[in-house]
Design a binder for these strands. Structure first.
Length: 848
RNA sequence: GCCGAAGUGGCGGAAUUGGCAGACGCGCCAGAUUCAGGUUCUGGUGGUGGAAACGCUGUAGGGGUUCGAGUCCCCUCUUCGGCACCA
């Protein structure tokens, strides 16, 4: 029951005024805690999640679209009877807060929480059905404590480690970036060029899960294929062999990785990465080595240097030179390659530049053996480029004549037998570097002690809280280094003087498990976790909650996270599983990646000046219109072209809904429910009734099938058009209108909940539209009485005929052939064949 | 370069998956309401020929399969995404 004052003012001629009705219903839902959710084993759960925003200041249209999509799903599932978990929170650590601190001298915390307060207000104005009691902010100590806890657990399990290596450094952000955060040699955030810098850093061993993350891709049937493919490509599994080449003169092997052991006989030199441990030792000319290093990681010319050393090809005992080459990556494989210029384009270019021999050992499968090269020198014309395809081996000793695929196996077997190499699997995926030299992030909970080395902070001392006494100058170095109170501490082991780690964590750590935090969050915070992770905790706790809510049934967000966030979350979910906290391996069963919001052919951005401000839109049209247009203009996975006129159209539609209900309001309020039996209804009334059932069916199907809200809304528009054209003139026909209006409002309520709720209440319903069950249709009533039969002659449209829907095929054929126009066109031509497509068309094939 | 997706009216987009191409909306045109503009309402609206009935043509381009193709197959072109010296 809603209070009486909600349906006063009825006497005045009422216009659709979103500015009054929207806040009213938002307040009403909130007061009633309508969207609060608790675990309920008697009901089926549905976890509907949208990617949480970074609190940058205001929401943008991308958020409106993302959250409108998620809200329709959540409201629809709720009406279907699911126990829906629909939470929202804040990805609230990150650089913009720190930049604001430097620029405006406001503390990142203050800046962030002010933004959160404002943006939360904006989201509430959109009428999104969130359970705000589960809200989390990743910058709160209660949240980031668990980042630290997970880190310590990973440290214990050897999944977190520290190493010195070349890392991606962004000057502008003054911090390190993970490989996933370097887009086209530039910083994902600020677009400045990333350079390589040698630093000690913390890494998470995501590569331990490489195989599982890859094989898990095959279970992601609810994800867009392209996203799964991007994940697979990023993990980048390849099969090959590692082979040891003995270096002459020193007691040391060089181990190389190749996916083409079938080309081993064509190796004419060997290349080391400039970062290879032996590079320094073997390089005769150190200045030259530096020059090669300067070209490392750049996709420009091939630059190399002969070390003076030679090594032995284990297959044919040939002595080949050892080079150092800029294009050989230290991070992939072993940091050393055998170079087969005849069959690898990069090696080919390098060989041409430095005058190294090119020896063909694979020929196309079409070539006859007689034409195959003999005696180590290719016959015929020299290669213009590398022959990179597989083929038949030549000049390869006992392996000549084999196909590449067979030779790969046999040569690898041979190497294993002789102890010269082994088959291996390699991944492009590298460990996740999480150290950031910034303030506004989770402090990495370790302590450096001169006696004890690296010591993790004890669990009881968590969280390690960010100090307040920090100055934001923006002049390099981690700001945490400047806080004496933070930096200096006692070693947890020996109690001696020690200092804290001053780097903070990559903010992608925060978002890698926030969906789990939502499941556990309650009015006392993340206390379920706190209790559980204490020693001798009670057995209730997180297990039952996580078992109930996880995994996420529907995840909605931008495709820009196809690799970054989604891969990290899949990794974290597995780590958390292996800690015994959850059972599932995949966090997100279904993923919907919505397209961007485009205006004038470009993504909305301040620099392009094509931004639409959601505040303006809500003030002018209301949130129902804003939501409706976002959902109507394009299917969710596609880019949405913004159109001011299109918004007018959405607003107009809601006004038409409003006026058609107003027009019949008094009669509707008095009308009895629709009695069964429709035989005595007029043609027009039957049409409205049928259209209503068809619309319920269509809207339901479009939501179920890929969430195609645009066509669902189009169907509701059709229904409204039909209703506007119908004038009931007796009580029974009024019942039909009542039925149509009631169902229309229920169908609308996930999309435009405020107007649906308001009109629903105006019609005198005692319940809340948002809590009503989703409408059902009657397949019998939804059936067309008659259909327009299309008559084709030789596949061309030649006429149309209204026939009753149940007509048998033979009768349909008869009717078509009797049609006067058809008779005329056919004339004297013989009928070869007649095809009848049930309920659709007749195609008469004629001709000589 | 490699991998992937997509090309449909003036525009955003539909098309039960091989069966009327253009639903729905925007825009535009005409009419009604209005002092007028806006709003609202009614009708029309792919191109082309025709006064009209109606005809021809049309889903990036070319070929093919089929009674029938926007949809399936082959080739070409264009656009957009992802990866990019991954050995």
């Amino acid at each position: 029951m809603f209070p009486e004052h909600f349906r006063r003012q009825e006497s005045v001629e009422e216009r659709y005024d979103p500015a009054t009705i929207e806040p009213k219903w938002q307040q009403y839902w909130e007061e009633r805690n309508l969207f609060r959710t608790d675990k309920d084993d008697s009901r089926k759960k549905f976890f509907c999640l949208e990617m949480f925003p970074y609190p940058s200041g205001k929401i943008h249209m991308g958020h409106v679209r993302n959250y409108a999509i998620g809200d329709v799903i959540a409201r629809y599932k709720r009406m279907q009877g699911y126990n829906v978990l629909h939470p929202m929170g804040w990805d609230s650590f990150g650089m913009p807060a720190e930049n604001a601190a430097i620029k405006h001298n406001v503390h990142p915390s203050q800046w962030t929480y002010e933004n959160i307060a404002y943006m939360k207000g904006q989201l509430k104005k959109l009428g999104l059905s969130y359970d705000w009691s589960r809200e989390v902010a990743t910058c709160s100590p209660e949240y980031y404590k668990w980042n630290q806890w997970f880190f310590i657990k990973m440290l214990e399990k050897g999944l977190a480690y520290r190493k010195s290596s070349y890392v991606n450094w962004c000057h502008s952000c003054a911090t390190v970036l993970a490989n996933e955060q370097v887009i086209d040699t530039k910083c994902w955030r600020c677009d400045s060029v990333v350079v390589q810098k040698k630093l000690e850093q913390w890494f998470l061993r995501i590569t331990n899960y490489a195989e599982e993350l890859l094989s898990g891709c095959d279970t992601l049937s609810g994800w867009p294929e392209k996203v799964v493919l991007m994940q697979k490509n990023w993990i980048g599994k390849s099969h090959g062999a590692e082979v040891d080449f003995r270096v002459e003169g020193i007691d040391q092997n060089i181990r190389i990785f190749t996916t083409r052991p079938d080309t081993l006989f064509g190796a004419t030199f060997l290349c080391l990465s400039p970062g290879h441990p032996l590079a320094e030792r073997l390089a005769a000319d150190k200045d030259e080595l530096e020059k090669v290093r300067a070209h490392y990681g750049k996709v420009d010319e091939k630059v190399g240097l002969f070390t003076g050393a030679y090594c032995i090809n284990p297959m044919n005992n040939e002595k080949i030179p050892v080079y150092i080459a800029n294009f050989v990556l230290m991070e992939y494989g072993t940091g050393a390659i055998m170079s087969v210029p005849a069959h690898d384009q990069r090696d080919f270019e390098f060989a041409e530049k430095y005058g190294l021999p090119i020896r063909q050992v694979i020929v196309g499968a079409g070539l006859a053996p007689a034409h195959q090269p003999q005696g180590g020198q290719p016959q015929g014309l020299p290669l213009q480029e590398a022959f990179v395809d597989e083929g038949i081996l030549v000049d390869s000793g006992q392996f000549s004549g084999l196909k590449s695929a067979d030779a790969k196996q046999k040569i690898a077997d041979h190497l294993e037998e002789k102890g010269l190499g082994k088959k291996v699997v390699n991944y492009k995926l590298r460990d996740w570097g999480i150290s950031r030299q910034r303030y506004w992030g989770t402090p990495i909970p370790v302590i450096y002690c001169d006696n004890c080395g690296i010591v993790p902070v004890s669990e009881k001392d968590l969280p390690v809280i960010l100090p307040e006494d920090v100055k934001f100058t923006g002049t390099g170095g981690s700001p945490l280094q400047e806080s004496d109170a933070f930096l200096h501490t006692a070693c947890p082991k020996c109690g001696g003087k020690a200092r804290r780690e001053t780097d903070t964590m990559d903010t992608f750590v925060d978002s890698s498990w926030y969906f789990i935090a939502y499941c556990l969050k309650d009015s006392s915070g993340l206390s379920v976790m706190r209790d559980q992770f204490k020693e001798d905790s009670s057995p209730i706790t997180h297990h039952s909650l996580l078992k109930y809510w996880m995994p996420v049934d529907q995840y909605v967000g931008g495709v820009e996270h196809a690799v970054l966030h989604l891969l990290y979350s899949r990794f974290f979910t597995r780590v958390i599983r292996d800690l015994g906290i959850i059972k599932v391996s995949e966090p997100f069963v279904n993923l919907l990646t919505q397209g961007m919001v485009i205006k004038d052919g470009a993504k909305m951005s301040k620099s392009k000046g094509n931004v639409i401000d959601p505040d303006y839109l809500i003030n002018r049209y209301g949130s129902d219109t804003s939501r409706l247009f976002s959902l109507f203009a394009a299917p969710p996975e596609r880019d949405l072209d913004w159109s001011d006129k299109g918004v007018d159209g959405a607003y107009r539609f809601l006004n038409r809904v409003w006026s058609v209900v107003q027009k019949h309001r008094d009669a509707l309020r008095k009308s009895a429910p629709l009695a069964t039996g429709t035989d005595d209804l007029s043609y027009g009334a039957r049409a409205v009734l049928r259209k209503t059932h068809q619309t319920i069916r269509k809207v339901t199907a479009d939501i179920e099938k890929d969430y195609h809200f645009n066509t669902a809304i189009a169907a509701m528009m059709e229904l409204v058009n039909e209703m506007i054209g119908f004038e009931p003139d007796n009580g029974k026909e009024m019942q039909v209108v009542t039925f149509a209006v009631d169902n229309l409002l229920l169908l609308l309520s996930p999309f435009t909940p405020h107007i649906a709720e308001e009109l629903w209440a105006k019609l005198g319903h005692k319940e809340i539209a948002s809590e009503m069950p989703w409408p059902v249709w009657d397949e019998e009533i939804a059936k067309d009485e008659e259909i327009e039969l299309v008559i084709q002659i030789n596949g061309k449209l030649r006429g149309k005929l209204m026939i009753s829907a149940g007509l048998a095929d033979d009768d349909v054929k008869e009717r078509a052939l009797q049609d006067s126009k058809v008779v005329e066109i056919i004339g004297g031509q013989g009928i070869k064949k007649v095809i009848v497509v049930k309920g659709r068309l007749v195609n008469i094939v004629v001709g000589a």
